[in-house]
């Protein structure tokens, strides 16, 4: 075996590198949604009337509630990091649990919203949808695609936080070594930030 030590070994613990890697990954996520925002921008520019008209079908109240739910979940996950930094593992676990519960709340509300649209036949291929103008179809398709992809991220983020709770229980994540929780938190905040833009662009066209 080698009888010398590399200070710069790739196998050493390096929290800064982990966080840097997570940020880089978030950049790719931003641009992934960025492509969709680009499509949205162009089609909204080309069909502003139709987009306005179609947006009346969306429920502003539900959208607002979901915005508040996600912001609050962002708060709880941020607080959980403060808690673990201060050595309060129990509180940290409770706060992550709360975050996951908010994530579920968000998904349940989303489920009711989507079912309402399904009842009105607004999903691509359904009756009402087929009779819409092309530009309105575009709006609803983008709505389902973008909120759907976002919903998928909510599910992944929630699962990730659940996994981190498991790691905290196993003492893999501790007040001395909590970068995994920080990264999980970063991912969760990204999910929130995407929604911060989705909300006005779909619900608040007036």
């Amino acid at each position: 075996m080698a009888n010398f030590v590399l200070a710069n070994s790739g196998h050493n613990r390096d929290d800064e590198a982990s966080k840097f890697g997570m940020w880089l990954f978030l950049f790719t996520e931003l641009l992934l949604f960025g492509g969709l925002f680009l499509v949205y921008t162009i089609y909204r520019y080309l069909n502003s009337e139709a987009f306005l008209h179609a947006s009346y079908e969306l429920d502003v109240i539900m959208g607002t509630i979901n915005t508040v739910v996600l912001l609050t979940s962002s708060l709880t996950v941020a607080l959980s990091i403060t808690a673990i930094q201060k050595g309060n593992v129990k509180l940290s676990l409770w706060l992550i649990t709360a975050t996951i519960l908010f994530a579920l709340t968000f998904l349940v509300i989303k489920y009711f919203e989507w079912s309402a649209k399904f009842e009105h036949g607004l999903f691509p291929g359904m009756d009402h949808y087929n009779h819409l103008e092309p530009a309105e179809k575009m709006f609803f398709f983008l709505y389902f695609f973008m909120t759907g992809l976002h919903g998928l991220h909510v599910v992944i983020g929630g699962a990730l936080l659940g996994y981190i709770m498991w790691d905290i229980k196993k003492k893999e994540v501790t007040p001395q070594n909590y970068v995994f929780l920080e990264n999980g938190g970063l991912y969760w905040h990204l999910v929130d930030i995407i929604w911060i833009f989705l909300f006005p662009l779909f619900y608040l066209i007036h």
């Binding site: 962002s74 905040h189 833009f197 006005p200």
Partner: peptide, 17 residues
């Protein structure tokens, strides 16, 4: 709406993140 959304995003990034 976009300015407010951007402000919110910056706040989330700066403090929560």
């Amino acid at each position: 709406a976009l300015i407010i959304a951007s402000a919110k995003a910056v706040v989330v990034a700066n403090y929560f993140m």
